[in-house]
Design a protein around this nucleic acid. Structure first.
Lengths: 216, 216, 216, 216
DNA sequence: GATGAATGAGTTTTCATTCAT
DNA sequence: TATGAATGAAAACTCATTCAT
């Protein structure tokens, strides 16, 4: 049911973009429940009724935003996969991590929406959204791992599911640490120069190599 | 300023416990902003004004709950540290991870409150709360790592800060994955039998050993 | 910021008038702080939210009422000034006093709002409102006095500022005495027949003539 | 009914004074309705129930404060009357005005309570309080005027009631202007050096002499 | 198709007063 | 006599949604 209505899609691109940007702003700043349609239309200078005509209700609007975000990620990772086809497993993971933080840099608000969605359990239709992400994560990592095993870069006694979980966990936590200003110093990585982050990633890759790959 | 007033602390233990439990329930279910004092007093069968006499305002109530949660964690980890004093570094990390998921089993609501707090950036006085946690995490991990280095269980060329970050990240992500019903299957670990989790932890420990310790 | 929103100004005149009247009633009866939006919308038979859509908040509503009152006074005094252009100074003051009590007769509630505003020091944005009045009082009295001095009706050694203060004081206190049911009898003037008030004014004017004008 | 109960009067003087001072503070700052018993007992560090045992209810407390204020004024003016017995009428009025502003300097809070009481018409039992003041004002001014007429300092064709009204008006307005920070500059007298105020008073006295006394 | 006025249940917070201890 | 916990009505304000124009 939710999502964009034809009325929205018939608008000219410029207006669609404007509404999209403002809605992303609102949800990223306030989360779903505290986001205010009042404030949104105020900022946009359009009628309140229009939003409901375009998206049905608040959730419809959010749903559209979320699908848009997923699309951005998909496009982004597809490019990495294609560009790294000939590299070894660890280089591909490394490239993916770099792409992850690059994505946050380019779309910080989209990532914040995602984070809020994951941890605010009372989100409407939260499970449907999460399923989309899960499928997507598996879709992306599983082939990488399998190719790695086939090529002998990962020891064959490692359960691919466990490997996927670990990679997903590292991925996720690394991005969280990068996006959320969690710590002021010490173990914090946000604000660190990209060089330092690259060093961190290299260390992680090193550990993965030792842990995943050391067979002989 | 916020926290429990004398008024609350003077109540008999039974009533205090009842209110504490109901408030934890409310915040864990709804997060801070969507939690409703109306609903809370309804559930408790007491007057609305009483809550404000006990805690000053909504934030005061939350603050009290949060401090209570931190105390639980402290007690919990202090025990682990004491009980594992004579074990090697990796065994201690392993014990800490096990204690972490045990804590979630015993206090699932407290952990959910914590998660929401971390990712809802518009939380009132969020930074004050986060500082408490950060200090605490550093207080706990740093000595463990240093002892490990001194004992030669961790290679000396590893930056203790990086090590702390990685451990904190693994810790945190593992607990998140355990607490949040993120995935329905596959790489999900929530709902997995404790046996399987133990196996996962063992694998992680193995990787850490290889990554942190392999010096010679 | 505060004042009427477009939403209010777009309503049809009849409804605007009805709301205006009811709000004046509420503020005149209860003052700012004790005025109740609940009671107001109850009396009007409209939804509570509407008032906030019209005026933003309670202060916005008050602000609108106050500006309306100032406008009434301005119109009223402008007329006096124009109608008495050719009269001498003392006749003009006399006419102004008469207009003052006539204004109270026509708009008793507006005057009561004004009085409460002046003496309730914790009023929000009280200073902004008072500034409006002060400017207005000076704007009105100063030219009158200067013209009087130029025409030789006021002795030239009288400080115009002192004269303005005295006139303003007499003006103000006279109107207060007229509007506020201060005394039940004796020195009270409220409820006195207009004839008697005219006599009082004449005596005051006589004193002013002797005090301000006796030069030779 | 309202006023202080025996329970209050039996307290030792120090505690009575402390409560009196705190209550004056509260009422002067917030007016009657916005004054908070909660805040008062908080500031005093005594039990909330005590206030109700001492004064019955909020109005009883206010009533006691108000009576206390009237007493202060009475004592103050009685002294002026006695000290100026042998002076002429105008000197006595002059001395009274000076005593008025001196009273405000010594008891600014009491005067603020009075002002709020006069203009907040929904005050409980407001009329009873006002009657006290009226009687008092008449009691003070009438004898002064009559003595002045008898001594030939005031022309005999002046209605003593009108004279009393005018004096009361000037008195009152002058004190209001002194107490309330009404104007920022120009015609404002608050904050003016006492010297300047003395000059103002002298001019007013001069006008009164011309207006009241010029008989021959 | 666009508008925006109307709605009313919801929110947190304050407060004078009562009364059992 | 003193205490202070309990009360609940009242306050200002927000908001997603509806629907007549």
């Amino acid at each position: 049911m939710p999502g964009a209505k034809k009325t929205f899609l018939r608008l000219d691109q410029k207006k669609q973009q404007k509404i999209l940007a403002a809605a992303i702003d609102e949800f990223a700043t306030w989360g779903f429940h505290r986001a205010s349609i009042n404030r949104l239309v105020q900022a946009l200078g359009i009628a309140k009724g229009s939003i409901f005509q375009y998206f049905g209700n608040k959730e419809g609007l959010f749903s559209y935003i979320f699908d848009y975000a997923i699309d951005r990620v998909k496009v982004s990772l597809k490019r990495v996969r294609r560009d790294t086809e000939n590299l070894d497993f660890y280089s591909r993971i490394r490239a993916s991590l770099l792409e992850g933080i690059s994505f946050i840099d380019r779309h910080p608000k989209l990532y914040r929406i995602y984070l809020k969605m994951v941890f605010q359990e009372d989100f409407p239709a939260r499970e449907r959204y999460l399923k989309k992400i899960r499928l997507f994560s598996v879709d992306y990592l599983k082939p990488l791992i399998e190719t790695g095993i086939n090529r002998g870069e990962i020891r064959s006694d490692l359960d691919p599911n466990i490997a996927a979980f670990m990679l997903d966990a590292i991925f996720d936590r690394f991005m969280q640490a990068y996006a959320v200003p969690f710590f002021d110093s010490g173990s914090n990585i946000h604000g660190a120069k990209h060089e330092e982050i690259r060093t961190m990633i290299d260390q992680i890759i090193e550990i993965l190599k030792l842990g995943f790959g050391s067979e002989e």
